[in-house]
Computed example of a mutant assay.
Amino acid sequence: MFAVLARLSATVALIALFAVPASASAAQPIADARALPLGTTVTVEGTATTPSGAFESSFYDKGFALQDRSAGIYVKTASDLGVRPGRRARVTGVLTDSSGLLTIVPSANGVALGRWGAPVLPEPVRTAAVGESTEGRLVQAIAKITKPVENDLPYGHKVYVDDGSGEVVVFVNTRTGIGVGRLAVGDWVRVVGFSSQYSDHYEIDPRFSRDVGVVGGF
């Protein structure tokens, strides 16, 4: 009897961790949500790909990115929810534009954190392909640094890379603590990060020091 009660208690605790009001709308694929007009209230579920607050120095919030099989999107939050890559989440909120980047601003109690799972693997992309079709996803590119690292403090640093298909900006946010002093023009680097947009240009935003590494010449 005690064993049965213990298992039941554990199950209830897990359900509560991912609980949403019974009246809440069913979650929709993130790709479908992205196609809706700004101001629309949406509910999506997915796996976190960036840690809470990693991009705070330029995003001005403590949010995180969420991805499912169809697409990805950034969730803007004022408080640090302690989300890390691999954490499941269900989000209900309003679609907004943040300096060109499509985001969700959650409603009150609009973020429900779920179980931990396998981290999302980055999608290999050509540098010229980083754009609206990849925005919101975790991506990976191998490319050559084409210009000296540009100081854009206090927000971060800009690293320009090109794999031969076209140049893209890798924006290294100050909050990530990623060092750029070792990076030089001509280096080939492997970059993993959030496919983002700022104003009229697209970029890759790495999350951790391991997301940027020199891989040698080609």
Rank of each mutant, 00 (worst) to 15 (best):
R115G: 05
T77E: 13
L113T: 09
V139T: 10
R84L: 10
F171T: 03
G136D: 12
A71S: 15
P122H: 03
E167V: 04
G186H: 02
V189N: 06
N173D: 15
V192M: 01
L113N: 11
P106Q: 12
D163L: 02
V149R: 05
F194C: 09
Y198G: 11
L102A: 08
D162T: 09
V75F: 06
P85S: 07
D80L: 11
Y198V: 10
S165P: 08
P119N: 11
T174P: 01
A143C: 02
D97L: 11
N151W: 02
A129F: 03
I73G: 08
P154I: 03
K144Q: 14
F194G: 09
R69F: 02
D152Q: 12
G110I: 10
I73R: 04
R126Q: 12
W116Y: 14
S133W: 01
T96M: 06
A71H: 10
A118T: 15
Y155R: 14
K147G: 01
E203N: 08
Q140F: 03
L153M: 11
G164H: 06
V139S: 11
G136N: 05
D187C: 01
E150I: 01
Y198N: 15
V91I: 15
V120H: 04
S98I: 00
R137Y: 05
V94M: 04
A112E: 09
A108M: 04
Y202S: 02
R190G: 09
D163F: 00
K147Q: 14
V130S: 04
D162E: 10
W188V: 04
R69A: 15
R190I: 00
Q140W: 03
R182V: 00
S133V: 06
S107Q: 14
V120W: 05
V91W: 10
K158S: 12
P106S: 08
E167M: 05
T103E: 15
R182K: 07
V168D: 13
G164W: 05
Y155C: 00
T103V: 05
V172S: 11
W188A: 10
N109C: 01
